[in-house]
Design a protein around this nucleic acid. Sequence first.
DNA 1: CCCAATTCCGAATTTAATTCGCTTTTTATG
DNA 2: CATAAAAAGCGAATTAAATTCGGAATTGGG
Lengths: 233, 233
Amino acid sequence: MLDEARPLARERWLEIAERAAAGCQAGPRDPKQSRSRRRQLDLLEAATRVFARDGIAKAKMADIATEAGISVSSIYDYYPSKEDLAYEIPIRRLAQFYAEFLAEGRALTTMRERLRLFLRMAAEYAARNPDWARLLYLEIWPSVLIEEARVRSAIDDFGRIVVALVRDGADRGEWSRELDPYQIATILMGSITHMIITWLLYGRPADLAGAAPAMVSQLLRLVDTCGDWTSAA
Amino acid sequence: MLDEARPLARERWLEIAERAAAGCQAGPRDPKQSRSRRRQLDLLEAATRVFARDGIAKAKMADIATEAGISVSSIYDYYPSKEDLAYEIPIRRLAQFYAEFLAEGRALTTMRERLRLFLRMAAEYAARNPDWARLLYLEIWPSVLIEEARVRSAIDDFGRIVVALVRDGADRGEWSRELDPYQIATILMGSITHMIITWLLYGRPADLAGAAPAMVSQLLRLVDTCGDWTSAA
DNA sequence: CCCAATTCCGAATTTAATTCGCTTTTTATG
DNA sequence: CATAAAAAGCGAATTAAATTCGGAATTGGG
């Protein structure tokens, strides 16, 4: 049943990560004039700050407009509603995140290293973009209400990539086929996102990006039959 | 430095769990008439359903009032705002959950078993009360905005208990002192809550309570120097 | 059965998102 | 450069929904 003679056959993770990195076309409006294009970016940045500070529900369009230096009604020339404005933010950044992962992940040789990279990058990306992370992890990710296909899909890609990496690793014989890929993926994603959320809410660990590698090492022991014991810094 | 002669010294988990189970006094209003007392419970149940279905932000007080069979303005005789109404729900149920854990946990002898129990119960409780779980895990837990001390404290107790169990276990020599209790607690809580969230959002695993024990076994391998390999069902 | 406390509710009031119609700015063109 | 069409911008309504208010109805003890 073992087939070691299939090193590069169907790399699930590549296919999924490529699609995820490409996503994010067809935004609500594509400004023709350059002033407008600049304003749209200002608007997105202002919205990110206000949403991160007040939460989507409590944030006022008036505050966002002031912060962006435009009028309230102009916002509606860019996005049909407050929610659509909020959703655009993770959609764009997630695609960028997946693209960065793809670029760095290609260069690696094992699924184990790619898994390590992906989880580490998730923490680093959050540490580098705290406002965006607040919005994504504390407001949008868990929300029941989001049927908006583009957001849902961008978020789901996160899980799909982790599952694909775990399965690809099993295919390559980097760990046992007995492991349930969904269970392992749940543990990996859950632990990292929980660490990020704890950091966002309580500021602990103080150095999120610094703590991530140790966490990831600890987690990866789970995919080994019997992990080594050195890395629990 | 090792002190094996301190088996029962200061059981952190007991102290914390007792306080957590006691919490939840001093609700916004304590009805004097019996009709009113009954109505308040109807109101909380109606609110749980509507909040779970629509989310706190989109839920309409009018819907809750209709569902509870009272008028909109009467709700304000019980709770000062929509949010306070929403917060009351997890406050009550969490205290009940901690009380159940305390009752069952006392009977056990090792911290390892208590940890296993706590995590399994969290999944079972969510599976038994899906509306409540939607509200807690998808809306309230991650919310930045909750400064309301009673909610914050009830939720924080969840983490405090897990950390306490991990530390008590180390004190008793059930596992290594080298382990970072915060890191381990993050993994345990993050994995379980992520499993619950996935179940709430996507219905997978189909049988949440059934899948929990295997997940917990897998997780507990992390506190062993080298775990056994049989339980990854 | 009656009174005071408690509970209840319909009708304002208020806040904030969204829409609308007109003005200003930009870009392309003769 | 002048100018018209397209694009972008805005203030003033409109609308939706939470919250407040002032009395009407109900309850429980005497």
